[in-house]
Amino acid sequence: MKTQLFLLIFIIILLFSKVSFAQDTPRAKSFIEISGGISNPTGNFASSALTNNIQSTYNSTDGYAQLGSHFAINGAWYLTPNFGVGGTLSTSSYSVNANALANEIINSFDCDSATASARNYNTISVLVGPYYAIRLGHLTIEARVLAGITNTTTPDFIMQAINLAGGSDPESISTFVQKSGTATALGLDAGIGIKFALAKHLGLVLRTDYFYSKPKLSFDNVGRQNNAGRLVTSYNQPIAGVNSTFGVCYFF
């Protein structure tokens, strides 16, 4: 991940370093764009490791987030041939690794079986910042660094520890829920894109961006009868990842 981030920053610096050489290139076109694609969560947000802590409850840093989708409306207005200001209104949605969560319940409670269910993580971001572009005929290579606010909403995590019926014992099912949480925090985004002009006003765009936000989420937990297993009451880990999108843009 650090390598990816370093490469991204290096490419952005490289593009900005061409300012002095790019003055003769054609002016980049201002645009508005709609794009969608995948978002690959990273770090603790995407982690789902089994814990070794079985003695009591523990506040896990694992987010159990999996590959998700990302959609955005982007736009920029180029003030000079290379420099512009712009922004993005975007939303991401990440599925939850329910299988790993169920395995963690079995690890924590040593029960016969476990179920886990959750809807998706969702984020909505409004970010603004500088754009830098180099236009090479029909192609435009673009870099951007954006900042703003990101709202993150986590789903209900609904879990069941199940002991099957055996001997004179009936089946035992204990249901507990980590309730949904939401928080807004600073959001950051840095990325590059390549645009291809199909016509005077229409183009295609490919982007890859690294995004980062660190909301302070807190959760209510219901149905917890015993001090055992994963019990997350607060989560202050980076909601971070890499977005790769494809879209169409309108030049003006």
């Binding site: 989708s69 969560l101 179920t115 809807r119 969702n122």
Partner: peptide, 13 residues
């Protein structure tokens, strides 16, 4: 299709 699907798992020991 992808916005808010329900992720469900049932795992045996």
């Amino acid at each position: 299709a992808s916005c808010n699907k329900n992720n469900v798992a049932n795992v045996q020991h």
